[in-house]
Design a protein around this nucleic acid. Structure first.
Length: 763
RNA sequence: GGGCGGUUAGCUCAGUUGGUAGAGCAGCUCGUUUACACCGAGAAGGUCGGGGGUUCAAGUCCCUCACCGCCCACCA
């Protein structure tokens, strides 16, 4: 950009701050503004009270930041989340509300461990077993520490006015202890148990994963139809031939006329070298129209079959191990499942038992993190029983009375149905209720090393201790944060599902299990704000946990935002190369522009778009504001303006009336969580009204000879500017604060020094 | 299979209780006389996915069809 000839510079000898002689340069001031806010310590509501910014008995607005994973750097999705929350937080803080926003980061157990393991494998060619548990955890800690500092710096760069004095990490000491405490209490209430059930086993990651971590992939497969033996009366169909050596029954529909006469008969066959005892049973879960209408029941390797086995008291031989290899004797022994499948097909052909082979497409379950094909296996795991009634000693939840007996499932349903938690977007309530209704036992143990280790201890010798109960295998077990004696006890090697600890997040961040002042003051939190993609994972589990431990809902309102997509509405993905980095964009156009372009046109619950053109547009807007200031300052130079905070409370001209209705409109949009509409209204007022019309109309007035009219207009311009700065501050904190900091005292009047804590204009 | 969204200007989307179709970006024409060219002025552009219904009046309410997308379940 060329420097203007100094002779043509009209402000050469004026008192206009020099910064306004150039276009707005966000890069120079953003970090300075953030430092100013942070050192003021006003992000902390206690400091606001001490300094009279907030009254101690003011209304509460509390919100816990959904902790970003320490694995990554900040992407547009997290930037959107931070922007929305910061806008709401700044808005409430300026209203004099006692406002708390708690920052945190998430260890993201499986994702983080997988990431570090992969890097070590790549650079050193070593697996986690080569390193050992202790060494791997050390490496992960180093990785986390490195990443964390980058993450936190980026969160600051967004402008997030988080109370850093209350920062929490899911794996820090306080949170770790709270999670242990939670496990023990839930166990003692009888809601956590250890049991053998079918789990989703990921042979690649060598761990259990939850239903929610499964991704279905469409694949072509062969559907084989065959009989177990020449004299076996029913043909069955399957895509997983190799599991058939684990069959104990053939199930048919009770109403199926073809097979009715066979129900109850039993057969002994030798299938692929494996002796089987097959019982023919009738079960309503069988589809008459699929395949032959008869289902070979493999209790140990299918969720559905396991449940059928429950109903018919069948045995459940396991034939596949954790490495997806066959455990039977004979020709299949030790083979991988895919090879075994071929082998069985071969055998069927030889024996003339194969009736047909059909190409079908089916959904294969794969692990989200590793891509491994899920092998359903029976395993001894820890579970949360969501259907077991317990007594809720003290309930603050609408629809549940203290002392009432409820199940976790009912608790989740009632919290939403009675309106104790409200959804900003109604359709998510339907989704949530549907999910809560179909909730099954929740498997909370994971066979990885990084995470909250299960507080259960085992030893093989007996001891007379009342706290000891007997598990299977005649091993003694003790549930507690520490072992009953310093030696002789081994801790369960598994760690907890990351969502177990995340479910406690709204109250562990406030100091639970201690009964802290924070917990009393800020819980239930006012609002949870997150992407809709983690509704079942996280939102639902927080309601469960908070209900159980505190008899409260974790938050009163649920605001879910959508995905951030690219300018054409495509998902942001590495393969498309369409990623737009918020930090890069901020360097180019300023963070305010990034923030506003993220929330403009973003309706709660729907996906939104971001593009570089859009960001550029709002950069221009920031500059417009800058130049409006320049004009106003020039116009009132030497004039006698006198600003007091209360000025706006008595609108005495169309100008003030218009400002009042703008404030009212913005407030209405905020109360409906439509910050997109609020920012839109402000954008248009500032540009189309204030800049294009009011300022233009002012020019003849300011140059005219009617001194009274000139004076009135000068006052109006000042008040208008201050009002606009305040209204825009939540959206564009950097440029508005930059301007505020450079306003001459006579214009700022008796307002506070930091715009961040200035009083919201009153109508 | 079950559920839920969406379809409005070239592109991306608003449109609150039914009352004369809106914005941003792109594009077109013109303009650089001092807040801002990171600007201003102006014009153009839509039978609101198709069909039917309710109503004095429908982008908005109801029915139906088509297409796109998402979530859940999952057939062995």
């Amino acid at each position: 950009m060329e420097e203007k000839d100094s002779n043509s510079q009209p402000f050469q000898n004026s008192s206009i701050p020099e910064a306004f002689l150039k276009p707005y340069a966000p890069q120079e001031s953003e970090h300075v503004m953030y430092a100013l806010w942070e050192t003021s310590r006003y992000f902390n509501p206690d400091v606001c009270i001490e300094n009279g910014v907030t009254k101690a008995d003011a209304d509460i607005f509390s919100i816990v930041l959904p902790p970003p994973n320490v694995t990554g750097t900040l992407h547009m999705g997290s930037a959107l989340m931070l922007a929305i929350e910061d806008i709401l937080v700044r808005y409430h803080r300026m209203h004099g509300t006692r406002t708390l926003w708690i920052p945190g980061t998430d260890s993201a157990a499986i994702a983080t461990q997988a990431r570090v393991e992969k890097e070590i494998q790549k650079s050193e060619g070593k697996s986690r077993h080569d390193l050992g548990r202790e060494e791997l955890l050390k490496r992960i800690d180093t990785f986390v520490e490195d990443n964390k500092s980058v993450m936190l710096a980026q969160m600051r760069s967004i402008g997030a006015s988080l109370d850093w004095s209350r920062y929490a990490y899911t794996m820090d000491e306080k949170r770790y202890h709270a999670v242990m405490e939670a496990f023990v209490r839930m166990y003692n209430a009888g809601l956590i148990y250890r049991g053998n059930r079918i789990v989703n086993w990921d042979p690649k990651g060598q761990t259990t994963i939850s239903d929610d971590e499964i991704v279905y992939e469409e694949r072509k497969a062969k559907l084989y139809t065959f009989t177990y033996a020449i004299d076996f009366p029913i043909a069955i169909s399957t895509t997983r031939l190799e599991t058939k050596v684990g069959d104990t029954a053939v199930a048919v529909h009770p109403d199926d006329e073809r097979y009715k006469h066979l129900v109850g008969t039993e057969y002994d066959v030798v299938f692929c070298d494996v002796p089987l005892h097959i019982k023919i049973i009738a079960d309503a879960s069988v589809e008459k129209d699929f395949g032959t209408g008869a289902l070979g029941v493999t209790p140990a390797h299918s969720q559905l079959d396991w449940e059928i086995a429950d109903r018919h008291n069948l045995s459940r031989p396991a034939v596949i191990n954790e490495y997806a290899k066959m455990t039977v004797d004979g020709r299949l022994g030790g083979l991988k499942v895919t090879d075994a499948r071929e082998k069985v097909a071969e055998w069927l052909r030889e024996e003339n038992l194969l009736i047909s082979v059909e190409e079908i497409t089916q959904n294969v379950s794969t692990a989200e993190r590793t891509g491994g094909i899920i092998e359903p296996l029976p395993k001894l795991q820890w579970w949360i029983d969501v259907e077991k009634p317990f007594v809720m000693k003290e309930s603050h939840i609408k629809g549940i009375t203290s002392g009432q007996e409820v199940t976790l499932k009912e608790l989740m349903r009632i919290s939403a149905e009675q309106g104790d938690v409200k959804f900003v977007t109604e359709r998510f309530e339907k989704q949530y209720l549907h999910w809560a209704k179909n909730l099954r036992p929740w498997c909370i143990s994971r066979q990885i090393w990084f995470g909250h280790r299960i507080p259960v201890w085992y030893r093989t010798h007996t001891l007379n201790d009342e706290t000891i109960i007997h598990a299977d295998n005649a091993v003694e077990m003790h549930v507690g944060i520490t072992p009953p004696e310093p030696t002789g006890w081994t801790q369960d090697p598994d760690v907890l599902d990351t969502w177990f600890s995340s479910g406690l997040w709204t109250f562990t961040t406030l100091g639970w299990p201690e009964e802290t002042a924070d917990l009393k003051t800020y819980h239930p939190t006012t609002l949870i704000e997150s992407g809709y993609d983690i509704l079942p994972f996280w939102i639902a589990r927080m309601i469960l946990m908070s209900g159980f431990f505190l008899g409260q809902v974790p938050f009163k309102t649920i605001y879910l935002h959508g995905l951030v997509r690219d300018g054409q509405g495509r998902k942001i993905s590495k393969s498309l190369g369409n990623n737009i980095d918020p930090v890069d964009m901020a360097e180019k156009y300023g963070m305010d522009a990034v923030r506003v372009s993220l929330i403009a046109g973003m309706v709660p619950g729907t996906d939104s778009k971001i593009s570089e053109e859009k960001i550029r547009g709002y950069k221009h807007f920031a500059n417009k504001l800058w130049n409006i200031t320049r004009f106003v300052l020039t116009s009132v130079e030497g004039a006698d303006v006198n600003h007091t905070i209360s000025l706006l409370s008595t609108p005495h001209s169309p100008f003030y009336a218009e400002l009042s209705s703008l404030i009212a409109l913005v407030d209405t949009h905020f109360s409906n969580y439509r910050i997109d509409l609020a920012s839109d209204a402000l954008y248009h007022y500032v540009w189309d009204r204030f800049a294009s019309e009011i300022i233009e109309e002012s020019k003849p007035l300011l140059n005219g000879h009617d001194e009274e009219a000139k004076k009135v207009r000068q006052q109006e311009l000042c008040d208008g500017l201050l009002c606009i700065l305040k209204l825009l501050h939540p959206f564009m904190p950097f440029v508005t604060e930059s301007i505020w900091q450079q306003l001459p005292l006579k214009i700022r009047g008796d307002e506070r020094e930091l715009l961040m804590v200035a009083e919201w204009p009153k109508i």
